[in-house]
Design a protein around this nucleic acid. Structure first.
Lengths: 344, 344
DNA sequence: TGTTAGCACTCGAATGAAACGAGTGCTAAT
DNA sequence: ATTAGCACTCGTTTCATTCGAGTGCTAACA
């Protein structure tokens, strides 16, 4: 069977209406809602076809229709008409750049959640492929060294190293120079085994320390920051009955937002395969996570230059207002972009 | 009217029973439940008295009684019989100390939540009154200085300072020495204006930098860490119907756990006035926060020596198992204490 | 041949009456 | 002082009924 224009229009009408009301929508509603001037009977026939083709579903015999995952998918892929959205709050929000990244991200999430009435998440930008800018060892205590590592983009990491041997000031200075001259400007991927052993050799009796420092560098850069996800508006989820019609489901969802592990997986999967616009939509069972099978997630990748890249996501029910969400995210992307290039 | 022993026993029985079932408890239940050997009729009379005295409440005419806030309060103050509790998981949990504080706290919260079936929160220890151990300025960029500040207890803070003037290596070294010799071993409170201006004077033309560093020190130490609260098990809240019988309430509560602001206030209030054991119980309307008026919170103060002190809290419905919670918290306190002193 | 009016049918939701039962308060007997 | 007994209350459960939104099908129509 063919998906002709009329069927499209009807499908669209069904979805639009369902997005608004959350109730199954019947033929009579459509017949008035659209400008097709068709009677409810005709619509019924068409809807029957659409159901057969798998775009819509009848929850029970005498109810209207609701979109299936396939229907949503079709809608998202072909029928979105993006209204230009203004996210007023965001403008002011992003102009004070000197804030802590922490606070900023948290606030972006909050504004997104408040604006959309869905839940929002945002990851801290990752610095993959970024280069070391500065390393320094300092003695803090008799047996403790402080290693400070600065990565491009002014991300600072530090670790305390416990050492067995005493180091005098001079040795420390030498070590610092050694580390800096050899490692600065390199990305993590570029620090390989050969290089490490060369360094160790040069360090002579202090080779064990060099090893520890390098471990610390690797550890510091990969851990921590990259799984940091900020969320906001988890409570919005409770607003949608279809997501919380039993305690079990609600509890699982809330848990997803508290233990951010699941979200992390979602995001990293998203970062892997990327399409043109950087905006991606997961609908229901397309989600890799079982507990979110009644949700949809719209994710977008933002970029702050220097390869600093993070992900923003909106999580809501399948009947979320895709138009609005995609629009909002695009606006936000633009503003982040503008912001970055202005400050450059 | 007098609260004689029999009334006490009955009140206790009512509360115990209600804690278990969550249902209003009737006179017949009590008459069997207790070892008083009284008929339901007698119990009824006594319960009628207890109601008049404000310890229990009848939700509607033909229902059993449930404890009032006053009843709970009486129970908590006088009737808790603490069973010694073993929190097995915690033992192993705390033995790997070299973990990141972050992870540790998060995990403690998680174990607490899982153990109690309520929600748990824990604040990072605060370092009030702690002393500076180490300060270092390093040049990262032509116009950027990295200030690293280590505080007793090996808490590390860092900030990037943007500077206008170029500094050569020698000046930097001098500044470092200056800062360290003057500031090390001082607590924030001890760094006063007189000292700052003295420092500035010695720094000569670089006085503005000294000012900035001191600001950064102050800023770094007070901000951030002290409002960090880790929570776990917010979804447990959803298990208790009385907390989530309407969407509004549920949403507000979940929000409390996501925007941790409210919890912060609760905790700081708790830190202010402290009683003997360090354990404190808030019941229902005793809570300073309206949105938690159907909850109870049990908080405990933990100490890691060196004046590092934080708060742990369990949040649940008013009918939470106070015995168990208080016991669990005490055990945990002990273990934290032992842990610290062993490692000392 | 595509569209539509009409109609019987389905089934969840809303309504309401009745029965149930857990619990109370009161009174009178022990 | 305690208790058995009983009438009464009131939320909950159950069941039947009605209601109505919506469907599918058929026959008539343009």
């Amino acid at each position: 069977m063919e998906l002709d224009e009329r069927k499209c229009k009807i499908l669209q009408a069904v979805i639009r209406n369902y997005l608004e009301t959350g109730e199954p929508v019947g033929s009579r509603t459509i017949s008035k809602y659209t400008d097709l001037n068709l009677s409810s009977a005709t619509i019924r026939n068409e809807m029957s076809d659409l159901e057969e083709m798998g775009y819509i579903i009848q929850p029970h015999t005498s109810a209207g229709r609701i979109p299936s995952d396939k229907g949503y998918r079709f809608y998202v892929d072909t029928m979105l008409e993006e209204k230009e959205r203004e996210v007023d709050e965001l403008k002011g929000l992003l102009t004070q750049k000197d804030e802590k990244m922490d606070t900023l991200l948290k606030r972006v999430a909050r504004v997104l959640a408040a604006n959309t009435n869905y839940a929002a998440m945002i990851t801290a930008p990752q610095y993959r492929g970024n280069k070391l800018k500065f390393i320094q060892l300092s003695r803090v205590d008799a047996r403790q060294l402080l290693a400070v590592i600065v990565v491009e983009g002014n991300v600072i990491k530090n670790t305390i190293l416990n050492v067995d041997e005493m180091l005098d000031d001079e040795t420390l200075l030498k070590l610092n120079i050694l580390l800096n001259t050899h490692l600065n400007g390199l990305s993590i991927e570029e620090i390989n085994l050969a290089m490490i052993s060369a360094l160790k050799q040069q360090a002579g009796i202090h080779s064990s320390i060099v090893g520890e420092v390098i471990d610390a560098v690797a550890e510091a850069i990969k851990s921590d920051e990259d799984l940091k996800i900020y969320t906001s508006g988890a409570n919005n989820i409770l607003k949608y009955p279809e997501l919380t019609d039993n305690r079990e489901k609600a509890s699982e969802l809330i848990n997803v937002f508290e233990e951010k592990q699941t979200l992390t997986e979602l995001v990293s999967e998203n970062l892997a395969d990327e399409n043109g616009t950087g905006i991606q939509v997961y609908i229901g069972n397309e989600m890799p996570v079982q507990s979110m099978k009644d949700c949809s997630v719209v994710t977008a990748t933002y970029e702050l230059g220097e390869g600093m890249r993070g992900t923003i996501g909106i999580i809501g029910p399948k009947r979320m207002d895709y138009d609005k969400v995609v629009g909002t995210l695009k606006t936000l992307m633009n503003q982040l972009d503008t912001l970055y290039h202005k400050e450059e």
